[in-house]
């Protein structure tokens, strides 16, 4: 499967090490995606990267990605400007259970750049506000300068039945918001176990802590918790073998899994 060339519409800086890329999808490409899915973005001569789609699934013809600069390929992506071209394959992978979540309270827990694939869920839920119960968004970042989507959070907090809380692991004197890891935010929300569906994205350790919190202290069953797994992905079609996690290929069986499904595997070291 070959990449479809797509034109860069906009590159916007988010934080000191993240940026958001908006692409115009050409007729050879596919713009439809389900929240949670990812694309393989090809930068000419540099390489291909799996990047979660962070945009609004209700806006046609556009694909939006928020990327953190961590290496050579992401640096090359960061150098793109409006009018440049990138190759796009996909979208690939499983999606957040936005259909199963209908009628439920949606709990979103994100750590760091993990808020990116979940922003698509928030867009979707707010676009179909009546279909969902309360929308609770808990976001943890490393420090105040790492907080993503600040304007979105302000906007979300103005929506009906929506609470978006942020916290940082390391605060400073100028920061007037919360300091504490993302699990400390659970003190400020009330969860109804039978009516809550949880969607988690962030570093694996953070998700394990969050699962312990919401299963243990809040009694949300593992079948109502969904999370994304990260492994090395090269082909996105289950052929290259890199992204295996036990019996699963993260690229085609994931990246979104129910906690019930992956719980036994999360305890195995170096899987």
């Amino acid at each position: 499967m070959e990449p479809a060339p797509c034109r860069v519409l906009h590159v916007g800086r988010e934080t000191h090490d993240t940026f958001t890329l908006t692409l115009e999808v050409t007729p050879e490409g596919r713009a439809e995606f389900a929240p949670g899915q990812f694309s393989m973005l090809y930068v000419f001569g540099v390489g291909e990267l799996p990047i979660s789609i962070s945009g609004d699934p209700g806006v046609p013809g556009r694909l939006t990605y928020t990327v953190r600069v961590v290496g050579r390929a992401t640096e090359a992506l960061a150098r793109l400007r409006a009018g440049d071209w990138v190759g796009v394959r996909g979208p690939f992978g499983s999606a957040w259970p936005v259909e199963a979540a209908r009628g439920m309270d949606v709990l979103i827990v994100a750590g760091g750049i993990g808020i990116a694939p979940l922003r698509s869920v928030v867009y979707h839920a707010l676009r179909n506000r009546d279909a969902y119960g309360r929308l609770i968004i808990l976001h943890g970042a490393r420090s105040p300068k790492d907080l993503l989507y600040r304007a979105d959070f302000r906007h979300w907090n103005r929506q009906a039945e929506t609470r978006a809380l942020t916290t940082v692991d390391h605060g400073d004197m100028r920061w007037r918001g919360r300091v504490g890891v993302v699990t400390t935010l659970f003190r400020y929300v009330r969860l109804v176990p039978e009516r809550t569906i949880a969607m988690l994205c962030g570093p694996e350790i953070m998700m394990r802590y969050v699962c312990a919190e919401i299963c243990g202290n809040h009694r949300i069953p593992p079948s109502q918790i969904f999370l994304t797994m990260e492994r090395n992905m090269k082909c996105a079609a289950g052929f290259c073998g890199h992204c295996q996690f036990g019996p699963y290929f993260i690229c085609k069986d994931g990246p979104v899994f129910s906690y019930e499904k992956v719980k036994p595997l999360l305890g195995i070291h170096e899987l």
Partner: peptide, 16 residues
């Protein structure tokens, strides 16, 4: 709860 949170904080999971 404070201890668990401190441990998670110690890991600095979002660091580059």
């Amino acid at each position: 709860n404070r201890l668990q949170a401190t441990r998670l904080q110690l890991l600095d999971v979002y660091a580059a």
